[in-house]
Amino acid sequence: MENVATYAELGKYLGAGLACIGMAGAAMGVGNVAGNYLSGALRNPSAAASQTATLFIGMAFAEALGIFSFLVALLLLFAA
């Protein structure tokens, strides 16, 4: 019982580390968006310029989830 605080500490750090795995998913998502945009743009370069806004929106949505996991890690480290 006397090590409860230590275990809590341990759990926090482990949890923060695990939360960072979520960022890998965001990285894959953003890479997927960019890669598919590029392959589409190379097939049809004339339509590429009109789709950059969509590209950024897609990237922002994918990236936001990675930011959420980063936020969870930060919350565990500093605020829990």
Binding site: A60, F61, E63, A64, I67, F68, F70, L71, L74
Partner: peptide, 16 residues
């Protein structure tokens, strides 16, 4: 939520 945390999180993450 996502609109605000995306911005704050990106800026905070980079600075941290």
């Amino acid at each position: 939520v996502s609109h605000s945390i995306r911005l704050a999180g990106n800026v905070m993450a980079g600075h941290a």
